Lab assay of single mutants.
Amino acid sequence: MSIQHFRVALIPFFAAFCLPVFAHPETLVKVKDAEDQLGARVGYIELDLNSGKILESFRPEERFPMMSTFKVLLCGAVLSRVDAGQEQLGRRIHYSQNDLVEYSPVTEKHLTDGMTVRELCSAAITMSDNTAANLLLTTIGGPKELTAFLHNMGDHVTRLDRWEPELNEAIPNDERDTTMPAAMATTLRKLLTGELLTLASRQQLIDWMEADKVAGPLLRSALPAGWFIADKSGAGERGSRGIIAALGPDGKPSRIVVIYTTGSQATMDERNRQIAEIGASLIKHW
């Protein structure tokens, strides 16, 4: 067993022997301040990774656009098919120029040779490549099948209805392509620590998230040296922004954090800054 596999296998073990965790309302004060600064709703939840206990939450059962955070769930569904012998990570998928959609920095470079399922998941999570996500959605049967996968996990809230990039439209009061912070946090925890996926697939999923290259201005910008984070960000229309993450000190994750916002007129930089400040408060009061 590799060191990384050992780390993920012992996530519940280490967490069980940690000192009790206590909620700190100071972080919620910052979440509410972010709402004021952005002029928009902000949803927040913080779960203990081992027990699933909610440590703090704000608007945990209000719907927010998922945006690209759905790509972690998508690759979880792909990995479940791999575990069941219905898919192979090494299978190569070929596609054409007509398949390319807006923001496809990886797939646009491989029109000639195609990409493997493993490479597509890596591109979808680490670079948020939209064509990679659409190609992977095709392998599982489309958005409705991802929703069905989530329902089978016990998540009857999260739903995907459309493809990239239309799913980022974020129309107010439109339930399409949305989740709730509580539902997303619980589902992410199941994917990373539950028995739904094999140990190898859980490790692969967290490795992809740990290698995320496009979430630097968010929670990662607030992390002290030595902290662990595996995350996936999302951005959408109407001032929408979000991030889902597993993080913790001492090089291992111990909490799940989900943050979503929508309806702001603020710039992307300002949305990023507010999420980073929430992260800084979380870490300060850990």
Rank of each mutant, 00 (worst) to 15 (best):
A77F: 05
L28Y: 15
G279V: 05
P249A: 09
P25K: 15
L120M: 06
E102H: 06
W286C: 02
R238F: 12
G90N: 06
R255G: 02
P253D: 14
E26P: 13
K252V: 11
A280L: 11
E145V: 07
L74K: 00
L192K: 00
R118Y: 08
Q97P: 08
E237P: 10
L219P: 05
S254K: 11
P25H: 15
T186I: 08
D207T: 09
L146V: 07
E169Y: 07
E108W: 15
E102S: 08
W227D: 00
Q203F: 15
L47F: 11
F64M: 06
H110C: 06
T69L: 03
E195F: 04
Q88H: 14
F64G: 01
A215E: 05
F58L: 15
K232H: 01
P249T: 11
V117R: 02
M115D: 02
F149G: 05
Q265A: 08
Q97S: 12
L135E: 14
L197R: 06
D129R: 01
D269H: 13
L192G: 01
A148W: 10
H285D: 10
S221E: 14
H110R: 12
A133E: 02
R220P: 02
R81K: 07
A124I: 05
V42A: 10
V42H: 02
Y260M: 13
Q88D: 15
S51T: 09
E46H: 14
T179M: 01
I140L: 11
L74N: 02
N98Q: 07
T267E: 07
N272S: 14
P224T: 12
G142Q: 05
E61G: 09
H110V: 11
T138E: 15
P253N: 12
G76N: 02
A132T: 03
G154P: 05
F70E: 02
L218S: 03
T139Q: 15
V29K: 14
L73V: 09
Y260P: 00
A124P: 02
L150E: 03
E166T: 11
F58T: 12
G248D: 02
S51M: 11
K109Q: 11
V117E: 04
T267S: 10
T187H: 08
V258S: 05
T186C: 08
T179L: 00
L28G: 12
E169M: 11
E166P: 09
Q203M: 06
S240C: 09
I256H: 00
S221L: 12
M115L: 08
G39S: 09
R162T: 11
T116Y: 05
D129V: 00
R220C: 04
T267N: 14
T198P: 08
Q86R: 12
D174E: 10
A182T: 14
L111Q: 09
G154H: 08
E62M: 09
R118S: 13
V257W: 00
V257G: 01
A211E: 13
S201E: 01
A225C: 10
M67T: 11
R189A: 08
G236M: 02
G263K: 14
L55H: 13
F149Q: 11
E119Q: 08
L167D: 01
R255M: 09
D212H: 04
E270G: 14
T116W: 03
K32E: 11
D250S: 08
K32F: 14
T178R: 01
T147Q: 08
E46S: 14
T27H: 05
E169F: 13
V78Y: 03
G194H: 11
L247R: 01
N173S: 11
D155V: 01
S240V: 02
K232V: 00
P25L: 14
K252A: 12
K190P: 03
R255Q: 04
I256T: 03
P165V: 07
V82C: 13
I278L: 14
T158W: 02
A40H: 04
Y260F: 13
